[in-house]
């Protein structure tokens, strides 16, 4: 577990195995707000992409405070989860990107995982969100937590 490469691999595998994440945002009043959302992650673990209708509370929250957190896990709702399940908590900065921006690689990333969400993604009312990951916390064996730093918190370039 000490090996960075191995930790990265373990996180990447967990991200690849799941379609949905729990996204936590913060309201203007300071309340935490959790919602289930489709996601896709880049191979380099630098970026996670999401899409949401602009009218949603989560989108308003992101506009208010781009510091978000995501939870992705492989639990199966069985007793065995207590020793078997893994979960990764992601901390990052969210920002909206145009679906057609650049070489469109982020949209391709999203659609590769969720091809049936093509229309949804391209709807003018949908916001395409890029989360620049600061760090991951991987929880396994019930209590073991390893931290992987992707960016420095003070790195302003991500905002």
């Amino acid at each position: 577990m000490q090996d960075t490469g191995q930790l990265k691999k373990e996180i990447a595998m967990l991200l690849a195995s799941q379609k949905l994440a729990v996204l936590s945002t913060q309201s203007a009043e300071g309340y935490a707000y959790a919602s289930l959302i489709a996601f896709a992650a880049g191979d380099d673990l630098q970026t996670i992409v999401l899409a949401t209708p602009r009218a949603t509370r989560k989108f308003a929250n992101i506009r208010n405070n781009p510091r978000v957190s995501l939870l992705i896990d492989d639990r199966s709702n069985q007793d065995t989860d207590f020793h078997d399940a893994k979960a990764v908590t992601v901390m990052g900065m969210a920002s909206e990107v145009a679906v057609d921006a650049g070489r469109n690689s982020l949209a391709a990333l999203y659609l590769e995982k969720h091809p049936y969400l093509d229309d949804f993604l391209r709807s003018p009312t949908t916001a395409f969100i890029q989360v620049s990951v600061l760090r991951y916390y991987l929880v396994s064996r019930f209590q073991e937590v390893m931290e992987l730093h992707i960016r420095d918190e003070n790195d302003l370039s991500v905002i």
Partner: peptide, 9 residues
Amino acid sequence: RQIKARQLL
């Protein structure tokens, strides 16, 4: 510095 143990069992 990239990898850090947060909680160990």
